[in-house]
Nucleic acid binder design. Sequence first.
RNA 1: GGUCCCGUGGUGCAGUUUGGAGUGCACGCCGGCCUGUCAAGCCGGAGGCCGCGGGUUCAAAUCCCGUCGGGACCGCCA
Length: 583
Amino acid sequence: MLRTDYCGELGVGDVGREVVVSGWVDRRREHGDHLAFIDLRDRSGVVQCVVDERHDLRSEYVVRICGKVRPRPEGTVNPNLLTGEIEVGDCTVEVLSTAEPLPFPLHARTEVDENVRLRYRYVDLRTERLQHNLELRAKVNSAIRKAMEAQRFTEIETPMLVASTPEGARDFVVPARLHPGHFYALPQSPQIFKQLCMVGGIDRYYQIARCLRDEDLRADRQFEFMQLDVEASFVGQDEIMVFISEAVGAAVAAVTGTVPPEPIYMSWTEAMERYGSDKPDVRFGLELVELTGLFADTTAKVFQVECVKGINYTGGSKSLGRNAIDELTRKCQQWGAKGLAWFRVGDDGALEGALTKFMSVQEQAALGLAMDAKPGDLLLLIADSRRKARAILGLLRLELGRPPINEGGLNFVWVTDFPLFEAIDDQGHPVAAHHPFTMPHLDDVALLDGAAEELLAVRSQAYDLVLNGWELGSGSVRIHRMDIQRAVFRALGISDEEAEQRFGFLLDAFRYGAPPHAGFAFGIDRLVAILAGEENIREVIAFPKTQSGADPLSNSPTVISDRHLDELGLRIKFADSARRLEL
RNA sequence: GGUCCCGUGGUGCAGUUUGGAGUGCACGCCGGCCUGUCAAGCCGGAGGCCGCGGGUUCAAAUCCCGUCGGGACCGCCA
């Protein structure tokens, strides 16, 4: 027998038992020929085994140890170890597998280079950090499934090889061998299929679905990611938010043991005005202050713009020197600002800054009052279009005050009343904020035939769930009435023919009895990362890719042979030297 | 497409500002000693294309240009 018990689960209750434990040699402490302590590690933890005879045991050897559990002698109990009250004595050791020294230490007291960690991911997976994170992830998945099933949702699997759609993110594409010159796409999300499920009478669909988007990677974005994907018939926004809150609450409870605090509800406009972001991080202040009215009659040219907003960086006048402020200015410019207007608040409460000479005394006083300026504060202002001023101050706010992801508890925010269209493009057509099947607010449907500016005022029945400043997911009530769908397409500048071509099969389906329906999807990697206190979703994914989309472990992506290409009817247009070298 | 940070024995770092022999620290590794340790201890030892290429210089880890790799971010992600 290879094992009777897990190492980390042995305790005083096992004293006297003959046990067999197997695992990796975590640490060894040898005292000559007749005494050695072996910390044996498996997924459950570590137990000390006392070996009385000589063995050539090295770190990370895989061994099987038979022995008898006994209490540790007086004075040798280790309170730092879960199994520290006992040890396994009278051990016989069998080496199951030897091991070369690891490429990096498992008990790193500092971070190891990520390239090395990924190249030897199978070693990295042995660390307590990743073992814990992956266990946590499994608990989240399990809790979500139970919660969705309890709410009478049915798990449905949708295809991985789907049709490419021009909307949205860049598709990953798969050549169709049986149809030369044709391609499948890997799904960005099961969006259309889950709506078809509603037409199909599934009523409540869910799936923990793999989604793929060929966009640049970030700390919170991988090519592949997992979503809890949900769609339900005969319900609206409020019911969906309850379904999702239940699932997320169950996941949090499964991990932390307590239900999360009630979410905050906030309109999109409020989020943009107060936090400069549609994913507001409400864990800290530094809220944006509206100043446009204050400068209505200003003679200062920089403030004669659509919008002036600012942040009072409390105490910033003392903590930030001129270089630091210049650095902030440079960042704001990189984000698209023309500049950053700033004022120190002097000990007497008066504003000091390059722009004061263009401002009246009244303006300076009103600015100080509006921003609740105290001596030592630093006032940071952006004057620009409303859209830019909000966005840039939103980024500046995070730069100045964002706490680590694991601080401040779990702050869920439902952001509601997103606009249906987020901007007007070069051709004068509005750009859909969510997707073109999103239901407008019924009160705003009449505006759909209006001018471009009116269209931007159309609210949608779309909603996002935000946690500690990360967008967890988004959803919407879908259009199930052809007249409204046509009006939205018309507003988007999509002709009937074009709509038929692009979304024909969905529109066809809607002709045969489509129930009112709504849905949501949220990113499980992000939820797990936040629950694990990780700033980066790579830490909660077993085999992630680097920022350049490569896998140092398996060396993907790779070139493929010419024979392989021929079979698929493909020819490489830009063959670089690397490709020629490898083949 | 763009901005910024990093690259030095297996690992983590210092050294780069102000050029002067691969100079140092901690961990790991190898050998020896050691019967109650637990990040064991003590003694000894091995291990380097300073990411790569070019340039400046009497002389480059150090300065300059390019390039590759990793990371953070902007754009992008309906």
